[in-house]
Simulated scan of single mutants.
Amino acid sequence: MPISTANVLIITQNWGIEETEMTRPLRELREAGAAVTLAALTADPVETVQHDRFEGETVTPDATYDAVSADDYDLLVVPGGTTNVDRLRVNPAAIALAQAFAKAGKPIAAICHGPWLLVNAGLLPGKTLTSCRYIAADLENAGGSHVDEQVHVDDANGWRLITSRKPDDLDAFIGAIKETLGE
Rank of each mutant, 00 (worst) to 15 (best):
D44V: 06
V46M: 02
E47R: 15
E47T: 13
T48G: 08
T48H: 03
Q50K: 15
Q50A: 08
H51N: 14
F54S: 10
E55G: 15
E55R: 13
E55A: 15
G56K: 05
T58G: 01
V59I: 13
T60Y: 07
T60K: 15
P61W: 00
P61G: 02
P61Q: 03
P61H: 03
D62C: 13
D62H: 15
D62L: 12
D62E: 14
A63H: 06
T64N: 14
T64V: 13
Y65D: 01
Y65S: 02
D66F: 03
A67V: 10
A67I: 11
V68F: 00
V68Y: 00
S69K: 12
A70W: 01
A70G: 14
A70R: 05
D74T: 09
L75R: 06
L75F: 08
L76M: 07
V77F: 07
V77R: 01
V78P: 00
G80Q: 02
G81K: 09
T83V: 15
N84V: 04
N84D: 11
V85M: 10
D86P: 04
D86Y: 13
D86F: 10
R89I: 04
R89N: 11
V90E: 15
V90N: 14
N91F: 00
A94V: 04
A94L: 11
A98I: 01
A98M: 01
Q99C: 04
A100E: 12
A100H: 03
A100K: 04
F101K: 04
A102D: 03
A102H: 03
K103H: 12
K103N: 12
A104Q: 14
A104Y: 06
G105R: 12
P107R: 06
A109C: 11
A109E: 02
A110Q: 06
C112P: 10
C112T: 02
C112H: 09
G114Y: 07
P115V: 04
P115F: 10
P115Q: 07
W116P: 02
W116V: 10
L117F: 14
L117P: 06
L117Y: 07
L118G: 03
V119W: 02
V119I: 11
N120Y: 02
N120F: 02
L124N: 01
P125N: 13
G126C: 11
G126I: 04
G126L: 06
T128P: 07
T128K: 05
T128L: 10
S131A: 15
S131K: 04
C132A: 06
R133W: 07
A136T: 01
D138V: 05
D138W: 01
L139T: 03
L139D: 00
E140Q: 13
E140A: 13
N141Y: 03
A142L: 07
A142G: 06
G143V: 06
G143T: 08
G143K: 12
G144W: 00
S145F: 05
S145K: 15
H146Y: 15
H146I: 08
V147L: 08
D148T: 13
D148I: 10
H152D: 10
D154E: 09
D155F: 02
G158A: 09
W159N: 13
R160Q: 14
L161H: 09
I162A: 04
I162W: 01
I162L: 04
I162N: 00
T163Q: 02
S164R: 00
S164E: 03
S164Q: 07
D168N: 11
D171E: 14
D171A: 14
A172P: 11
F173D: 00
F173Q: 01
F173L: 01
F173I: 01
I174R: 08
I174K: 05
